[in-house]
Simulated assay, not measured.
Amino acid sequence: MFFGNRKGSGQNTGQDKVISMDSFRSGCSLSPIRQAEAYWTALRRGNDVPNRSQIDPRGLENILSQTFVLERIAPGIARFRLAGQKLNEMAGMEVRGMPLTAFFTPAARKQVSASLEHMFDAPSIVELTLSTVATRNNPAQEARMLMLPLRSDLGDVSRALGVFVSEGNATKTSQRFDVVATELRAVTAVRPVQKKQEYKSPAKTTNELNAGFAETQAKFGDERSVMDEARALAKKSREIMDETRQTLQKTGDQSKSKQNIAPHLRLVVSRD
């Protein structure tokens, strides 16, 4: 914003008005458009577009009268599912259920349909600069429209969140707009917030030399549990019992073999 000198200061150079940089020629503020886009961006996850179910009216409470929700029903055609009071005033009737192209002149409808297809297929953000046709009694009136793509409950991009900004409709008659300019912005990926990670020292492998003059680390074996020790003791006991049993069996076999030898006499002959 630019600030001029106060009147009566003696240094007035003609710049004594406050000029807002967030408005177009008609003097309407563009803050509702920027607020809706910021809210839509905050709902995104990565490079995806938000779901229709994520939209909470409380997040757009102060611009609900200028907000609307579209539903894609055919190629190049979208209808109003929800619409604020501002849009009803501009149309001079309830617009819920009506196609979006009803707001535009026949010459501008083809351009609006192409913008809708690009928004749903790319997907992309659409911002339109609009103007009514000047008549003898009513001068041309400017307006702005922003449309932001949304996913339906089925996961396809067939919904849109929109904001309409204009001076109003004093005549309460139906207004038709021409498209003065169209701005298409591709939905780019949102940079994820990097979480602060705790520092962890690198793990050292076995026998890796430490820094400085430290000695080589000794390799430790796996710690044995109580059950492992009990199994080892039981196995050792069985081995000892088996060895004892085999020794006793061998001793018994030798004694039996001695008993089975028949007694005999030894005859010693001497011829002396």
Rank of each mutant, 00 (worst) to 15 (best):
N5Y: 04
R6S: 12
K7D: 13
Q11H: 15
Q11N: 04
N12I: 03
Q15L: 14
M21I: 06
D22M: 09
F24I: 12
F24D: 14
R25Y: 06
R25V: 10
L30R: 03
I33Q: 05
A36Q: 12
Y39R: 02
Y39T: 15
W40Y: 03
W40M: 03
T41S: 15
T41C: 11
G46L: 08
V49P: 04
R52E: 06
S53T: 14
D56C: 10
E61N: 10
Q66H: 14
T67D: 09
E71I: 08
E71D: 12
R72M: 13
A74K: 14
G76F: 03
R81Y: 04
R81S: 05
M90D: 00
M90C: 01
G92D: 04
G92E: 01
E94A: 13
R96F: 00
G97W: 00
G97C: 02
A102M: 02
F103G: 03
A107Y: 01
K110P: 01
S115C: 15
D121C: 11
A122I: 01
A122E: 15
P123V: 08
P123C: 06
P123M: 03
S124E: 13
I125D: 02
I125R: 13
V126N: 02
E127H: 03
T129Q: 15
T132E: 08
V133I: 12
R136N: 11
P139C: 04
A140S: 14
G155C: 10
V157F: 01
S158Y: 09
S158H: 04
R159S: 03
V165I: 08
S166N: 07
G168I: 04
N169L: 06
S174R: 05
S174E: 14
V180I: 14
R191N: 10
K195Y: 11
K195I: 08
E198M: 06
Y199S: 04
P202Q: 09
A203E: 15
K204V: 14
T205Y: 03
N207G: 05
L209I: 08
A211G: 11
A211M: 08
A214M: 10
Q217E: 13
G221E: 10
D222L: 06
D222N: 11
E223N: 13
R231A: 14
K235I: 05
E239C: 02
E239D: 12
I240W: 06
D242P: 03
K250D: 15
G252M: 09
Q254S: 09
Q254D: 14
Q259A: 09
N260V: 11
N260D: 11
P263K: 07
R266W: 03
R266H: 15
V268H: 11
S270Y: 11
